[in-house]
Write a protein that binds this DNA or RNA. Structure first.
Length: 865
RNA sequence: GCGAACUUGGCGGAAUGGUAGACGCACGAGACUUAAAAUCUCGAGUCCGCAAGGGCGUAUGGGUUCGAGUCCCAUAGUUCGCACCA
């Protein structure tokens, strides 16, 4: 016997039936422009990468978005809720190399099967607006956007470093570098300089930072993370001339410019450190074998900041010395250090061991001098010494010549003033944010629409030749970029002079694809990239929903791109996402035995533990963690839909955990959700069978009506607050009240039950839309579809309470409760509280010092003696 | 390493600074049943107590407050991000 044969509600036939009914009336098609008589609401979930199978994380993400979309539609908004595919990327190329499938075919097949799953889940999506970034109908417009930015001066070409695998002769992504080695070849990777395209996001550093203040419906932590990422800091650039330069070096030409946020500590400088890829380091390395080896070693760390920062702090003395402008008699050594980043500031820092922990560690390691220049508050100048801990806070400057006695802020000001007066430095604002390198040496991405000509340089592909299409006939039988190997694709003539020229064979970073898709959704069939009228009327996205892992890069790139599209005349908005919600992961227990990880369907509960289904042998239970293929602790949405139906899957992912937190997937939880759906159906069946449609309310049923209308308020509030788990709890309570009412023969209870049943149906609809339709069809067979109905309204007369229960505390500890009328004044409440038997007993022999009464909430007696 | 966050019964979690543990899961007892499943009813943080009631309790240690899960400081553990995964 299958699960559903024992059940009353047959989701297997009902779900497709209602999906067809919605389709028939095109219930989810958005207007080209939001209807004039309705407020607009654009709800968007981060579109998926078509990896092959929809996973539970997607179900949670899209179920959340669908709750918002359906709720807002019921509240009378003109809703835009589209879906598409982030379809370019490395996994398709990996599949091509590993299995010989063409990346395009692999991707389109994946899209086809994932679309079916999304549709079976019954999401209220406007499928007419579907886009896939790997199709020329999408990426051609992206090429146009890029060229517009190029013409506007927002694009630059310059050199930067990549991870190079010398065995596979290919560029590796950071995630393909494992412990400094290529993931396939195992070769030690090297840094390699390549000419690449950059989008000048740093031009927008200030507005991107300031714009964060306007995003009041973003999680504070995401705003903080972006703020830190952009990293505005005030400080100084200081130029140190070389002291007694060796042969071939020049005092000024080879001087070192540093950026510092602590110019006040310049008197404590004991070394200067430069990045391994600093030009001066390269120059030193020409005839310094030790430096050469050290630089080579640094390059093996790869390009990821994480690897560089986590590595042991090491350095190599170049033998050069520079002069401290504040102490011209002193010179300090110049070191190459593996913790200095070329990308930040000037690629060089001065080391003040007193004021910076990293500098102090470095100085101790290489026996460099440590001069105390900051006196922390409460320390005495005579006894203060620096041990293993630097003074990273503020203090009073000491041993610092003209800065002596000043505090940190004043010291910075004076130091900069003096540096500027001497002409060796100036106060500057520095940003941590770096320009966005968008060139990728890969096939499965959007071609960069540029032609390289020996005479004319980098020439944009003329607009009328767009899109530059990816060639289909490519091979993956050798490493490197197939576009580069292709027999004729890159060989073209220069659009300007007609001479033989070469196409750019790099493609865009896939983050470019996802930086404007929300705008394309507003007019997905427009002839140009963006229809400004549609974009300006639908944007910004009112509610954007996705994973916290995108808190920085994707969201920052999209914010930048929107500003860049504004500047190139494609739209008039600056911030793409007015509201942001970041949802947590789905986790599951993991199981293993000596043969390795086991899938949930291979194990079963037995007593206190788990055993294998096939041989009954006990299984070790691992902790609950993110569903992943490697741990085999995944649960396929398709399997759940088949066994329990879409509504159960949706209900479960929404029910237990607050959506921003991780949620644990459990078998018991899913079946509980299925049971609740059946319970609702039975309750409504009973009402439909027992209560005539024209039953009148009369005097009875007030308590059920109160429960109904309070639930309407509570569920509405929960959905507005993005806490569907709380809505679920309140709906459980209303269903319990409705079940209880079946036993009552109060006159008027029938009508109250009908009212409760209909409210239940409408309130669960955003979460379980198919079941809701079924429930309403039982109650009102000729009535409108739920998707055409508006959200229920609570009647105020049922929201008032007859009495409230208040806690009574003594010294903040609960000693009893009292029943009082709502909003009862202190002269009624306090005597009642004091008279409560247990309270009275505890108050005996004590003197009440203070009586605290918070109406409807609490009474607290402070006592003495 | 740096940045950001999270931590409440056996489990998921609820709680405008005001009765901690709503709601659900798992568990136990009972009803229905030839039996099981399903369904329904009741119970339950923990310790002491026959009970009434009391002690303790929201990761750990401190602080602010009449009152702290909630605010502040420190510590621990876990998670996310670190610019070529998406």
């Amino acid at each position: 016997m299958t699960d559903q044969e024992t059940l009353g509600y047959d989701f297997e036939t009902a779900e497709p039936r209602w999906q067809a009914a919605w389709e028939r009336i095109r219930a989810f098609a958005a207007e080209d422009h939001p209807a004039a008589d309705k407020p607009k609401y654009y709800v968007l979930e981060m579109f998926p990468y078509p990896s092959g199978q929809l996973h539970m994380g997607h179900v949670r993400n899209y179920a959340l978005g669908d709750v918002v979309a359906r709720y807002k539609r019921a509240r009378g908004f003109s809703v835009l809720h589209p879906m598409g595919w982030d379809a370019f990327g490395l996994p398709a190329e990996n599949a091509a190399r590993e299995r010989g499938v063409h990346p395009g075919q692999w991707t389109l097949d994946n899209i086809a099967s994932m679309r079916v799953t999304l549709q079976r889940l019954g999401f209220s999506l406007d499928w007419d607006r579907e886009i896939a970034t790997c199709l020329p109908e999408y990426y051609g417009h992206q090429q146009k956007l890029f060229l517009d930015m190029l013409r506007k001066g927002l694009v630059e070409r310059r050199e930067s470093s990549v991870n190079w695998d010398p065995v596979d002769n290919t560029v590796l992504a950071n995630e393909q570098v494992v412990d400094g080695r290529g993931w396939r070849s195992g070769a030690l990777i090297e840094k390699k300089r390549l000419s690449q395209w950059f989008l000048k996001i740093t031009d927008f550093a200030e507005p991107l930072l300031e714009g964060l203040d306007t995003l009041d419906r973003w999680p504070a932590r995401v705003r903080t993370m972006q703020e830190r990422w952009i990293g505005r800091s005030e400080g100084a650039r200081i130029r140190f001339p070389l002291h007694a330069p060796p042969e071939g070096f020049d005092v000024d030409r080879d001087s070192v410019e540093v950026f510092t946020t602590r110019p006040d500590t310049l008197f404590g400088m004991s070394f200067v450190a430069i990045a391994a890829d600093h030009p001066l380091a390269a120059k030193v390395a020409q005839d310094n074998a030790a430096a050469r080896d050290f630089i080579e070693e640094c390059q093996r760390l790869g390009t990821s900041e994480e690897a560089i920062e986590a590595a042991e702090k090491r350095g190599c003395d170049t033998g050069l010395r520079v002069v401290n402008p504040f102490a011209p008699d002193e010179t300090v050594p110049v070191w190459i250090a593996n913790f200095v980043l070329m990308e930040y500031g000037t690629g060089a820092v001065f080391g003040c061991p007193c004021g910076d922990q990293r500098d102090l560690d470095f100085a101790r390691k290489y026996a460099l001098p440590v001069r105390p220049v900051i006196l922390p508050p409460g320390e005495q100048i005579g006894s203060f010494a620096i041990g293993r801990t630097a003074v990273t806070g503020e203090g009073t400057l000491i041993n610092s010549g003209f800065l002596d006695g000043l505090d940190t802020a004043e010291g910075k000001r004076k130091a900069i003033e003096r540096l500027e007066g001497m002409g060796v430095g100036r106060g500057v604002v520095n940003w941590r944010l770096r320009d966005w390198g968008i060139s990728r040496q890969r096939y499965w991405g959007c071609p960069i629409p540029v032609i390289h000509c020996a005479q004319c340089g980098a020439v944009p592909v003329p607009d009328d030749q767009l899109p530059v299409r990816l060639p289909e006939d490519v091979t993956f039988d050798r490493p490197g970029n197939p576009l580069d190997h292709h027999p004729h694709w890159k060989h073209v003539t220069c659009p300007q002079c007609g001479a033989a020229a070469q196409r750019e064979t790099d493609t865009f970073d896939t983050f470019v694809d996802s930086s404007w898709y929300f705008a394309r959704f507003t007019a997905p069939h427009a002839a140009g990239p963006i229809d400004p009228v549609a974009a300006n009327s639908w944007l910004p996205v009112d509610q954007y929903i996705g994973g916290i892992e995108h808190a920085i890069l994707h969201l920052l790139y999209a914010r930048f791109f929107t500003r860049a599209m504004h500047e190139t005349g494609h739209l008039d908005v600056d911030e793409p996402f007015a509201g942001l919600f970041t949802q947590g992961m789905i986790t599951h227990e993991s199981y293993r035995d000596e043969s390795g990880w086991l899938a949930p369907e291979d194990v079963t509960r037995s007593g206190d533990g788990y055993v294998r289904r096939d041989n009954g042998q006990p299984v070790q239970l691992g902790r609950s963690e993110k569903m992943s293929k490697s741990k085999r602790n995944t649960v396929a949405p398709t399997a759940i839909i088949e066994r329990f139906g879409a509504d159960t899957a949706r209900w479960f992912v929404l029910s237990d955990s607050p959506p921003e937190r991780d949620m644990e997937w459990t078998e018991a939880g899913v079946s509980a959700s299925a049971r609740f759906g059946q319970r609702l159906y039975r309750l409504v069946q009973a009402v439909s069978a027992q209560v005539p449609r024209d039953a009148s309310f009369g005097e009875g049923g007030r308590s059920l009506r109160q429960a109904t209308h309070r639930t309407i308020v509570a569920v509405t509030e929960a959905l507005e607050n993005f806490t569907p788990n709380v809505a679920v709890a309140r709906l459980h309570e209303l269903s319990a009240a409705l079940g209880e009412a079946e036993k009552s023969d109060e006159p008027g209870m029938g009508a109250a039950r009908r009212e409760a049943a209909l409210a239940l149906a409408l309130l669960v609809a955003p979460m379980m839309p198919h079941l809701a339709e079924e429930m309403v069809a039982l109650l009102e067979p000729e009535g409108a579809l739920v998707v055409e109905r508006s959200w229920p309204e609570a009647l105020p007369e049922f929201l008032t309470r007859d009495s409230v229960t208040m806690g009574v505390q003594i010294m903040g500890k609960l000693r009893g409760t009292i029943e009082v009328p709502p909003d009862a004044p202190s002269d009624i409440v306090l005597p009642l509280a004091e008279a409560e038997p247990n309270v009275a007993r505890m108050l005996e022999g004590k003197r009440i010092v203070k009586r605290i009464h918070v109406p409807n909430r609490i009474v607290n007696f402070v006592v003495a003696g």
